[in-house]
Every structure is written in C-alpha cells, then in structure tokens.
C-alpha cells in the first residue's frame, strides 16, 4: 500500500498573527531608564508601597501611581527554585536558579536568575546584586541585567522580610 492511501487523521493548520506592541506610559518610562542602566519604580499614593517594574497603578489599591522612585540594583532572595528541565523559548544552561528578589527600596519581588554560585547554595534571605550586560549591549529590556550574584553581606533574617517570608 502506498503511503498516500492511508486515512487522513489530522491536519496541520499554520497560524500567524502579527501584532505591533507598544510600551505605554510607565512601562515606556521604565524601559527608557533601564536602557540607561537605571531602575525606576513608582510609589502608591495610598498604601505607600513601591513597585518596580511599575505599571502606572497600584494593583492593591486600584489607583494611579505618578510618583517615581529610584530603585537599587541590590536585593534579597525571598524564595527561589532550581530549574532542571529545559523548555521552549528559554535558552539557559541547566540547572539554573530562578529567584524572587526583593530589590532594595521596592516592595514587590521580581523574578531573576542567580549565577556565580552553585544553584544549591542559594538561600532564602541571601543578599544579591545585579550584574549588567556591557553598556554597548543595553536596550529597552530587563535583559540588560544578565543575572544577580551573591554579595558579601549577612543574610536578611526571615522575620525582617515581613510579608515576603
């Protein structure tokens, strides 16, 4: 029997949709800052918490957040996982540590890579700093921060991590 006589059991339907995405407002301002090697956040006028990256609003209070705040590129690991499984769209050597990092002066953790130490050595409370890509490679993306690495500061006791412990 030739192959084309077999029953058709499935079809392949290629789909392609093209969108033009534009960063707007706070997002655009954040991208501008990071393309200059700076991190900027926004403070909620109601609960006074600081968000970085900012979204122009405080999700807790449902109000606009016009006040800008400079954010440090150092922070504390609030929790983490060690990724040991490959996945589409992500090109990193396994295993690697993805951590929730509370940047100093910000009140909401971001997710970022921890490198320059074995993944197993990462701890909750560990102090870390951003390692930036070479300046000539900077663009409007969080990827300017290639990863975070441990710094020689004592761990933050969990009881001082407040809500994030």
């Amino acid at each position: 029997m030739s192959e084309e006589k077999s029953e058709v059991k499935a079809i392949v339907t290629p789909t392609k949709l093209v969108y033009q995405f534009s960063a707007i407002g706070s997002h655009a301002e954040f991208l501008k800052a990071i393309s200059e090697g700076k991190l900027v956040g926004e403070r909620c006028p109601s609960c006074k918490k600081v968000y970085c990256p900012p979204r122009g609003i405080c999700p807790r209070c449902g109000v606009e957040t016009p006040e800008k705040v400079d954010i440090d590129d150092k922070g504390t690991v609030t929790t983490y996982c060690i990724v040991r499984v490959p996945s589409e769209n992500i090109d990193l050597k396994l295993p690697y540590c993805a951590a929730n990092i509370l940047l100093d002066r910000s009140d909401m953790p971001i997710m970022a890579l921890i490198q320059e130490c074995p993944a197993e050595d990462v701890r909750i409370g560990m102090r870390v700093e951003a390692i930036w890509a070479p300046e000539e490679d900077w663009g409007p993306t969080m990827e300017n921060i290639r990863y975070f690495r441990p710094i020689d500061e004592p761990d933050v006791p969990t009881e001082e991590m407040g809500d994030w412990y």
């Binding site: 058709v8 059991k9 499935a10 079809i11 392949v12 339907t13 290629p14 789909t15 392609k16 949709l17 093209v18 969108y19 033009q20 995405f21 534009s22 960063a23 707007i24 407002g25 706070s26 997002h27 655009a28 301002e29 991208l31 501008k32 409007p140």
Partner: peptide, 22 residues
C-alpha cells in the same frame, strides 16, 4: 503625558496547530 521615547516592536504569534479530526 509621558516624555519617554516610543518603544514599539513586532509581536508574532505563530504556531502550526495539529488538529486531529475524528
């Protein structure tokens, strides 16, 4: 009004769906 530069990029949603037929 924001004075930030305009960051705009193409976003392509592409996938070859494989549909079983019954």
């Amino acid at each position: 009004m924001s004075d930030a530069p305009r960051y705009s990029a193409e976003h392509v949603l592409r996938y070859d769906y494989r549909r079983s037929l019954g």
